[in-house]
Design a binder for these strands. Structure first.
Lengths: 138, 138
DNA sequence: TTGCGTGCAAAGGTTTTGCATGGCA
DNA sequence: TGCCATGCAAAACCTTTGCACGCAA
């Protein structure tokens, strides 16, 4: 955490998120995990930390369905930002893939020039079906 | 509606959704509209119809943010997929904008050809800062 | 000591559900 | 007549907020 104060709860949360890197977690799952490990953390605290991390760009938040809880995923701080990478997530297997691609850069430029929209690559995720899952369905 | 019974409420809802084709509406907006037009329809009824229409595939449902209401959009029975529309959402003001754009189609093609990823435009939302909010910050 | 972090409980907002009533066929 | 649709109110859920207390620096 790059919060002002370093706290036990912040450390635990960050560690847990890191340990789950590559998959996603709900706020409730985090709470359950902490409780099960003898260090319960209040829901509000969990949400407050998650929000902060999302702002910092080290965690992504996905809203899959308005009725199911949001999913969070640790993505770290070093990769991406200036590199203009983006992510796509497979709706079938849940795999999250990082891509560096000129084509995406072009789209960003286009959005900016023609639609005056400055994209935030950290938060934008493409949903769809990945190669493996596509093959499997044939 | 292709429900079992044809009802006044079903007709009104479908008509309204059709009249808003190309944009999206929340359940609450629908309720307000109906109330304002002298034919109030219960929230539960609105949701029940929307759910049915989504199942039938004539309406799309977008979940932008876990805290804001879901958006619904009439797409009819045939078009959608070839239209390749997409959405972008402003992180500042929360505005959701709906675009039909060739550039996006190209990105989809590219992702498919070079990365073997078949994008789902229904679910993909671009996040960033819109024109107005960008201006305001200068 | 200062002021952020925490946790509880309550609030806020969206969506679903139970149930009695109304309306279509 | 039989059964689905409706609407109200309440429930269910996720998430945020208010507030008093605890803890880091």
């Amino acid at each position: 955490m790059s919060s002002r104060y370093k706290t036990k709860q912040g450390d635990i949360l960050l560690d847990y998120l890191k340990s789950r890197q590559g998959s996603h977690v709900t706020a409730n799952e985090i709470c359950e995990h902490c409780k099960a490990h003898g260090t319960p953390i209040g829901t509000a605290t969990v949400y407050r930390h998650l929000e902060k991390m999302v702002d910092e760009g080290i965690v992504n938040k996905y809203n899959i369905d308005s009725n199911s809880p949001a999913c969070f995923e640790y993505i770290g701080s070093e990769n991406c930002c200036e590199e203009m990478c983006f992510h796509y997530k497979c709706e079938k297997c849940g795999k999250l893939v990082h891509l560096h691609c000129e084509e995406f850069k072009e789209l960003c430029t286009h959005l900016k020039e023609h639609h005056n929209f400055v994209i935030n690559p950290m938060r934008t995720v493409f949903y769809g079906i990945c190669e493996e899952c596509g093959e499997r369905e044939k």
